[in-house]
Design a protein around this nucleic acid. Structure first.
Lengths: 214, 214
DNA sequence: TGCACCCTAAGTATTCCTACTCATAACAAT
DNA sequence: ATTGTTATGAGTAGGAATACTTAGGGTGCA
């Protein structure tokens, strides 16, 4: 009997998941919770075979839970279950060593199949992002380019985060105790690295990607 | 036995909902689907007592389903079940005559209680937006102010939509065959009506609220 | 030591947007 | 017929961001 733990901040969604997994012979849902810290605590203690984690959770997000799991060398395999079909989030999940990446729009069969794959040591990825996987493979084969955000330095990331908080260059300068000109230079470098052009490009990008900024 | 229909594009979430409602004596889930058109078709034919509708759905969103239900004078009472806790969406739902507004983060008890209330002809609103209800009540009592977006004229809305598409004033002018100055005037009026100030205010607002723009 | 990279800063020019005021024509409401 | 609203456009001013270039100081690496 394989032990499965579920963490998601939507009780109804959790209920549905539990229902699906419990119905499958060989699977047992050994626990559930709605936030990252409780999830980590449970996983560290009880060491389930698989943890189904939402990425967006209160207190501690799924990424950070996985990081901790890695640090503590826990045997639990992590399956991300998320609404985000964006490439960067998927990429980050893979970097951190997730065993699977499921979209919440998945049908019930996908989930069972996913868990079976992961238990066999395989990876599993939701069909909807397979398009992206194709391009990713191409990238890996051809030139191994880094994707956007990873090209940014730490200062640039810091500034991009402040931009995502709708701060002006002036405000950012005051917060970081540096010159406005320096901030403008960083903005410029960020735009260049991300291939962003025009006055209406950087701010929307920052807003759309703020959840990716470490 | 009260007949309940469920429409939500997330199969797992639907599963959870069905589980919760079926477990309650007196409730019967008579159907489910994952898009608005199928939902409307079912509701028009079978006339369930209550329809639990997601707002974001493929093919036809929850708002439009409710509009059609109103047009066709169907007896089915609509409960919105959504992730959006924003005031404007809530307001729009109420305008259209929704009987309840539940957030997807609701716990299972809330849902049962909600359905019971609606069956008794009462309204029900998720606790998390009760804060807003308070201010809404105050508004209704004091001056009956319109909220934000409703104050915009149709041209202003059109322009705000284009701003949300990251178009510059120059581009908007070219699209609408009007002068840049006119566009800038409209931007200005929008900012005034929405009480937005500074260079980093209008664009983020447009992005955050584009789903509200008719 | 030298090279590469980063953070810092400033110069210059251009574009974009905000924040006002003013004006005219179209249209609806009373 | 007057008033109000809307859409259109322009004038002026200034703030903000982009798009370049140049340059000193620091760190780390080969």
């Amino acid at each position: 009997m394989k032990k499965i733990f579920i963490a998601d901040d939507h009780p109804i969604f959790r209920k549905g998941l539990i229902e699906i997994i419990s119905a499958e012979p060989g699977f047992e849902v050994v626990g559930e919770c709605g936030d990252g810290i409780t999830a980590l605590k449970y996983i560290a203690e009880k060491k389930p075979d698989i943890a189904l984690l939402d990425i967006q959770m209160p207190k501690m997000n799924g990424f950070d839970v996985l990081k901790k799991i890695n640090e503590l060398n826990l045997p639990t395999k992590v399956v991300f279950l998320t609404m985000h079909s964006e490439e960067d989030i998927f990429e980050k999940a893979m970097e951190l060593g997730a065993k699977a990446y499921l979209l919440k729009e998945s049908v019930t069969d996908d989930i069972v199949q996913c868990i079976n794959n992961v238990l066999q040591g395989k990876f599993y990825v939701s069909g909807s992002i397979s398009n992206y996987l194709f391009t990713l493979n191409n990238k890996l084969k051809t030139g191994n380019e880094k994707s956007g955000l990873q090209k940014l330095t730490s200062t640039e990331t810091k500034i991009l985060k402040l931009i995502a908080e709708k701060k002006s260059s002036r405000e950012i300068a005051d917060i970081l105790y540096i010159s406005v000109r320096t901030v403008e230079n960083h903005r410029n470098n960020i735009c260049t690295k991300l291939d962003l052009h025009g006055a209406n490009a950087l701010l929307p990008f920052a807003l759309e990607n703020k959840h990716l900024l470490v």
